[in-house]
């Protein structure tokens, strides 16, 4: 990446792999469980978090020297809340059906631990450009896991991807359904999302054993 220095590039790259907010820091699990039954919802959620965290990090970073540290959590909450309301209104205006699927989980971006975590841990101590990159990197890391989980859950649970019947029609018995295949209803339940995230964590840590914590 010629555009970014090596240090800046790491801000984007690390959260995608070895410092992933979901699989390594184990943050933002609640939304990863709730909205990954469909790929489309997961993508929209990732984009929303990308928007909120990217801009929020810059705003907090710009204000970092004037926020009194006693009330910083309140200030952070106001910034997130304002951004989340924008996202929510945009979704309601242009993608009403989808905003109904996501329901409260758009509003709950406010309490997504990743966002407050990045504000506290990074934006309060770094300049706006680096904070922006950090926000983008972490929300991409979050989005990647969400999309992988949603891909498997929608494919195996409903036999579709983004609503397209990629495995054939279960009622008319075309595609793989002709051979007696059936959708796995367990995939659509929240516990299976946790298990899929667990399997990703398992694979990641067995490929890079340095990530395994000692007890």
């Amino acid at each position: 990446m010629g555009l970014l220095s090596k240090k800046d590039a790491a801000l984007i790259k690390d959260p995608l792999a070895d410092n992933n907010p979901i699989t390594i820091q184990v943050l933002g699990i609640c939304s990863a469980l709730a909205i990954t039954a469909e790929l489309e919802a997961a993508i929209v959620m990732s984009v929303s978090v990308l928007f909120v965290l990217g801009i929020g990090n810059v705003v907090i970073s710009l204000m970092r020297n004037i926020i009194p540290s006693k009330i910083r959590i309140i200030v952070q909450l106001i910034v997130v809340a304002a951004l989340v309301i924008i996202v929510d209104q945009v979704l309601k205006a242009f993608a009403y059906e989808l905003s109904k699927t996501l329901s409260v989980f758009v509003g709950l971006i406010i309490t997504n631990c990743i966002i407050m975590g990045r504000f506290e841990a990074f934006a309060l101590a770094n300049g706006p450009w680096r904070s922006f990159l950090d926000g983008i990197g972490n929300s991409l890391g979050y989005g990647v896991i969400l999309i992988i989980v949603a891909f498997f859950r929608e494919l195996l649970g409903a036999g579709t991807l983004l609503g397209f019947k990629v495995l054939g029609d279960p009622i008319e018995k075309t595609g793989v359904y002709a051979f007696g295949y059936e959708n796995n209803g367990f995939m659509l339940l929240a516990p299976m999302a946790l298990i899929v995230v667990g399997i990703i964590i398992w694979i990641q840590r067995s490929r890079n054993t340095a990530l395994v914590e000692d007890h």
Binding site: E182, G185, F186
Partner: peptide, 10 residues
């Protein structure tokens, strides 16, 4: 339990 939740019709 897996069978029960995954393939309830069976």
């Amino acid at each position: 339990a897996f069978l029960f939740f995954a393939y309830p019709t069976w």
